[in-house]
Amino acid sequence: RHRTIFTDEQLEALENLFQETKYPDVGTREQLARKVHLREEKVEVWFKNRRAKWRR
């Protein structure tokens, strides 16, 4: 597996949602994934990693 490289637009959308909710539900993740052309799984893992970074 290779590392996903997120575009600035994707990161902006992910960060904006993170400010709203640290734990978006699957529907919200799917909606964002469609909007920025990512797989929902990638969005889910990004949030998991972003929460870990936020806790540190």
Rank of each mutant, 00 (worst) to 15 (best):
K22N: 04
R34H: 04
E41Q: 04
E15D: 00
H37S: 07
G27F: 15
F6P: 06
R55H: 15
N49Q: 09
E40C: 13
F6Q: 06
E40M: 14
K35M: 15
A13M: 02
E20M: 09
N49P: 01
A52G: 11
F47G: 01
Q19A: 07
V26C: 10
T7S: 04
T21G: 07
P24T: 00
K42F: 06
K22G: 05
E30T: 09
N16H: 11
E20A: 14
L17F: 08
L38D: 01
H37A: 13
T28Y: 03
L17G: 02
A13K: 02
G27V: 12
R34Q: 15
E20T: 12
F6V: 13
E12K: 12
E20R: 08
E44A: 13
T4N: 14
L11E: 07
F6H: 08
T28L: 13
P24H: 02
A52K: 11
G27C: 11
L32P: 03
R34D: 12
E15N: 05
D25K: 03
F18P: 05
K35Q: 05
I5W: 11
R29S: 08
R1P: 09
R39D: 14
L14T: 04
K22Y: 05
L38W: 00
F6W: 10
L38P: 01
E9W: 03
T7N: 06
T7G: 04
Y23Q: 03
H37D: 12
E40N: 10
L17W: 02
K22A: 04
D25C: 02
R55S: 12
E30H: 10
V26L: 14
H37I: 01
T21A: 06
E41S: 09
R50Q: 08
F47Y: 10
F18D: 00
W54S: 12
F47E: 02
E20N: 13
Q19Y: 05
E15K: 12
T4K: 12
A33I: 05
E44L: 11
H2Y: 06
N16A: 15
W46V: 00
L17V: 10
K42L: 15
K42C: 10
Q19M: 14
E15G: 02
R51H: 02
R29N: 02
E9A: 04
I5Y: 05
V45M: 13
Q19K: 08
V26I: 15
L38Q: 01
R34F: 07
A33W: 00
Q10C: 02
I5R: 08
E44I: 06
E41P: 07
R29T: 05
V45E: 13
K35Y: 06
G27P: 10
R1C: 15
R1Q: 14
E44P: 02
E20W: 05
Q31L: 09
D8N: 13
A33D: 04
N16W: 07
R39K: 06
K48T: 08
T7I: 07
D8I: 07
P24D: 03
F47V: 04
R50T: 07
T7D: 08
L17Q: 09
A13P: 06
N49W: 11
E41R: 05
E9D: 13
T4V: 11
E44W: 07
V45K: 13
D25P: 05
T4G: 13
R1G: 14
T21N: 11
T28A: 14
L17T: 05
N16P: 10
L38I: 07
H2P: 10
R1L: 15
K53R: 11
K22F: 04
E12P: 08
E40K: 13
A13I: 05
L32R: 00
T28D: 04
L14I: 04
H2A: 08
A13C: 05
P24I: 02
E44R: 12
L11W: 05
W46S: 00
R55C: 06
Q19G: 06
Y23T: 11
Y23W: 11
N16C: 11
E9R: 11
W46R: 03
P24S: 02
K53G: 08
K42N: 15
N49I: 10
T28P: 01
T7K: 04
V26A: 12
T4E: 15
F6N: 02
L38E: 00
K48H: 06
A52I: 05
Y23H: 05
R51W: 04
T4H: 12
W54P: 07
G27S: 12
F6C: 04
R3N: 10
F18E: 01
R29K: 05
R39C: 15
Q31D: 08
L14C: 03
L11T: 08
F6R: 02
E12L: 05
K35H: 04
E15C: 02
D8F: 10
R1N: 15
V36A: 07
R3V: 06
Y23I: 02
G27L: 07
T28G: 04
F18T: 02
G27D: 10
R51Q: 05
V45H: 07
P24V: 01
R39A: 15
V36D: 06
V36F: 09
F47R: 00
E15M: 00
A52N: 11
E20K: 15
A13S: 07
K42S: 15
H37M: 09
Q31A: 14
W54Q: 10
F6M: 07
R55M: 14
T4A: 09
D25F: 03
E15P: 02
E12M: 15
F47D: 00
W46A: 02
T21H: 12
E12R: 09
I5L: 10
T4D: 15
K53E: 15
L14N: 05
R50L: 04
T21V: 13
E44T: 10
E12Y: 05
L11Q: 05
H2R: 10
K42W: 13
D8T: 10
R51L: 03
D8E: 13
V43G: 00
W54L: 07
K48A: 13
Q31M: 07
T4S: 09
R55T: 04
L17I: 15
L17R: 02
D25L: 01
K42Q: 15
F18Q: 01
V43H: 00
K48F: 03
E41F: 01
D25N: 12
Q31N: 15
A52P: 01
Q19C: 11
E41W: 09
H2V: 13
V45D: 15
W54E: 14
R39I: 05
T7P: 01
W54F: 01
T21D: 15
I5C: 07
V26N: 12
K35R: 11
F18R: 01
K48G: 08
A52L: 12
I5F: 12
F18C: 00
R34Y: 06
I5Q: 14
T28E: 10
E15Y: 02
A33K: 01
R34S: 10
R34K: 07
V43T: 03
Y23A: 03
R55W: 06
K53Y: 04
Q19F: 04
E41D: 13
F18H: 00
N49K: 12
Y23P: 03
F18I: 06
R34V: 09
G27M: 10
R51V: 01
K35C: 04
I5S: 14
N49L: 12
I5P: 12
V26H: 14
L11Y: 04
E20Y: 05
T28W: 03
D8L: 13
E15H: 06
A52D: 09
G27E: 09
L17A: 09
K35L: 09
A13N: 08
R3Q: 08
T7Q: 05
F47A: 05
K22E: 08
G27Q: 15
E20S: 10
L38F: 13
V26G: 06
K35N: 03
K42H: 13
N16D: 14
R34P: 00
Q31S: 13
E30K: 10
K48Y: 09
K42E: 13
E15W: 03
D8V: 08
R51P: 04
